[in-house]
């Protein structure tokens, strides 16, 4: 299966989405990411029982923080699929990219430029 997905996405592999912490998500934004999404296994199918459920909670927490500090809570999202669903992986990538295009770039980029000027 050779599927294309937007080349702007940088994939970070983790052994289980349960490994992803709120801090990892925030750091990505601090470093200038426009959006972050986590793709985990289907809920109920986690090899480690609740890794993907933890990930969902952390995504929610990160979203709340990003909202509170004015970066925007919609820039982070949790997706789930089974390992056989490559087409879905590509679909999620497209969906998220569209969403981020709509929201525009990470506001910190502009702020950084302004401060440097």
């Amino acid at each position: 299966m050779r599927l294309n997905y937007p080349g702007t996405i940088r994939v970070v592999r983790v052994p289980c989405t349960g490994k992803v912490d709120v801090l990892h998500i925030l750091r990505a934004f601090e470093k200038g990411a426009d959006g972050v999404y986590i793709v985990g296994c289907l809920e109920g199918d986690c090899r480690f029982e609740n890794g993907n459920l933890r990930a969902r909670k952390r995504v929610e927490q990160a979203g709340e923080i990003l909202k509170a500090i004015g970066i925007g809570g919609d820039r982070v999202k949790m997706y789930n699929l089974s390992s056989g669903e490559g087409t879905k992986f590509a679909e999620f990538a497209v969906e998220m990219t569209e969403k981020i295009k709509e929201l525009g770039p990470n506001p910190l980029k502009k702020a950084k430029e302004k401060m440097a000027a």
């Binding site: 601090e30 500090i69 401060m115």
Partner: peptide
Amino acid sequence: GILASALRMYFMNEGKK
């Protein structure tokens, strides 16, 4: 770590060093 990251982003977004 989380709070520090959040505050850094907040202040930067506000244009404060």
